[in-house]
Design a protein around this nucleic acid. Structure first.
Lengths: 225, 225
DNA sequence: CGTGATGAGTTACAACTTATAACGAACGCG
DNA sequence: CGCGTTCGTTATAAGTTGTAACTCATCACG
């Protein structure tokens, strides 16, 4: 959120209105998804008439971009704080799952079907990198006795490929196995979460939470819980 | 596709027009995604004026439902034919990946962010079950010496949970480890595919195809390729 | 403390969209 | 061959995003 108590009175007011627009946007988004987001409806709920919002957002795209940015920031903050408070992969994974279940539409805003003409600005890709860095930190700090993500162990073809293409990890001094673990932690947990949130498990009978826990255990090593 | 050469001339014409509408819909969908699908634009491209399409589809929702149905059917057919022609998990997985890459928007129509008010009709859930059945068949036919999906081996808590909640598998006589393998085959490959198609790997440096192959190897057992 | 620029909010409008209603014309079945 | 079903049309309603022009409050500055 932008500062709401700094700058000139005009800037303060502007920040407040922008914040309130986003508040209503989140409500509308949580209720009916991104495609149902209507500037007109938000304006009417705030007691103003349609075009007034164009003083605050250049259009629907800018509002959505802002929401995506806030969602990324929220996830990055949540993971970082969790990693600081309770180290280890399980805490991180469950923080991710809780964050996703708290507001599924927000998760889909980040990791769901991309909107047609949308290209993420630079600051969003840096937030995405921060998320991956948090996962990678946790994977690098893992004791060396947990099993590798692939049954074949370390030194798989993908391990060496990752070791040579690690710019996504910045200059993180992680072993290839840690890089591999971080990537598949991401993709596997996302695989379970996205299908669960989209409702593809309903009617199948099993408990998605147990599947999530099973996938987590396969990567974090079995721990007491 | 509905039969285009049976029934009365009226029914034939009707089926042809419906098919052509869907053809244009797929073009528009592949170009700009589901949210950009416009009945008006389709009508104009076909040389008729807007409301004419309502003779053929009750509305946008029914058209999209029909496209989702066709997408499911196409995937189910592709997987079934692949399984018949070349048994084994690798062929199945690569058929899935090829199908997804051929038309990413079609993949998202099936496994992407759900549309707000949409509930899948029964015949679509049965197509989804057919897809899972194909995966499960391939997993059940696997030689018993491939490593289990979890490092802890068979008999994990989730294995027994799945053994007790297997209605999604119908009355398939698969071992718990096969059920587990089929589910995680689905979720892990979807995890990689959906993030790849959404562009979340661009700029990270590594090759998504190798990650996909790595995840597949971890489930199918290392094979020559 | 006034005065003037800045900016907020308003209405009006254009160009879209989905969807319904009413009408004429064409088609095909008996 | 005629009559009814159905198709395609236009007109209309109720939305949407977004721009333009105008009013008026507010804020800053001399």
């Amino acid at each position: 959120m932008a500062d709401t108590d700094t700058g000139t009175p005009r800037e303060r007011y502007r920040a407040q209105v922008r914040a309130e627009v986003k508040r209503h946007a989140w409500e509308q988004l949580a209720a009916a998804g991104a495609s149902a987001l209507s500037l007109n409806a938000i304006a009417k709920r705030m007691g103003m008439s349609g075009p007034a919002l164009y003083r605050y957002f250049a259009g629907r795209d800018e509002l959505i971009t802002e929401l995506v940015r806030d969602a990324y920031r929220s996830l990055a903050d949540t993971l970082r704080e969790t990693a600081a408070a309770e180290p280890g992969l399980p805490a991180l994974a469950h923080a991710l799952r809780d964050w996703a279940l708290r507001d599924p539409h927000r998760y889909f805003l980040v990791y769901g079907t991309p909107v047609p003409g949308y290209h993420a600005p630079d600051d969003i890709t840096s937030l995405a990198r921060e998320i991956m860095a948090t996962l990678l930190d946790a994977c690098a700090a893992l004791p060396p006795n947990v099993p590798a993500p692939s049954p074949a162990g370390s030194g798989t073809p993908f391990d060496s490929h990752l070791a040579e293409h690690r710019q996504w990890a910045g200059d993180h001094p992680a072993a290839p196995a840690a890089l591999h673990r971080a990537v598949v932690l991401w993709t596997r947990l996302h695989g379970v979460l996205s299908l669960e949130l989209a409702g593809h498990f309903t009617g199948m009978g099993f408990d998605p939470a147990l599947l999530f826990a099973s996938e987590l255990d396969a990567l974090a090593g079995p721990v007491a819980h």
